[in-house]
Design a protein around this nucleic acid. Sequence first.
DNA 1: AATGCAAATGAGAACGATTATCATTCACCT
DNA 2: AGGTGAATGATAATCGTTCTCATTTGCATT
Lengths: 143, 143
Amino acid sequence: MDKSQPENLKNVGLKSTLPRLKILGLFESGQERHMSAEDVYKQLLSTGDDVGLATVYRVLTQFQQAGLLVRHNFEGGKSVFELNQGKHHDHIVCLQCGHVEEFYDSAIESRQKKVAAELGFEVHDHSLQIYADCTKAKCPNKR
Amino acid sequence: MDKSQPENLKNVGLKSTLPRLKILGLFESGQERHMSAEDVYKQLLSTGDDVGLATVYRVLTQFQQAGLLVRHNFEGGKSVFELNQGKHHDHIVCLQCGHVEEFYDSAIESRQKKVAAELGFEVHDHSLQIYADCTKAKCPNKR
DNA sequence: AATGCAAATGAGAACGATTATCATTCACCT
DNA sequence: AGGTGAATGATAATCGTTCTCATTTGCATT
């Protein structure tokens, strides 16, 4: 199984504490790929692995800064995190069910770099979301 | 000059009241293209055209729903609005000074449609922001 | 294995952006 | 001009998130 080795945390300069191991383990379990702080908090509560909400927020931010997680700001105000698996991608978010699908398009990526360069900007990051209705059967069509 | 004709509001089904005319006029004045609710509120205060903050929020949302304004959710939590002038575009946001530059790239647009279609989604909307450092002299490099 | 200490945690207060409530005021029709 | 339902403004409430600070914990050292 996946056991979120303490080494993972040590390697990025974070002391391996119980709350941090539980939170990382939750992302590594692969149950849910995209989770908000609230999602993580409730998930841990439900399994009896209580971690304070403040700690969840702190740890998620630390993990993001350490590069273990990636933060997304979709519509709706709240931040969503996912495990950073190296390969950058963008998202399509279903407006009906909230389901998130990932995609990568090299043409889009390269055009972005070109456009920014032409305007005299040095790109740090970008954020692309497509909001759509997912027409597939698997869409429960319900938030 | 620009006088935000009452007709503009009537046409979209909104009673033309003083607060609404002032807010629309502010966007039409072209002083500042991208403004948050707070920006609008302060701007109106500074010219003595007092409008309650709650009203600013309400009116901005109504204008967005009516299609007069477009709402953007850049990083940083607060919503930013701009006059809807028909032509869609994306944004580059300077992480130093917060300056916003607009761009449109048809290659990016068409690739998005294609990608979504391949994944079985019906696109409603999309949101693309490039976060960068603006290297131009005009950048005050300060938030 | 016991000790010490800085770093991490948790409970709750505080915060910033936004929305809801509700009494008062206004736009507009007759 | 007058009546009425919609719009406004002051304020309370809400939501996601961060801060504060007393207590606990990881872990290196005895």
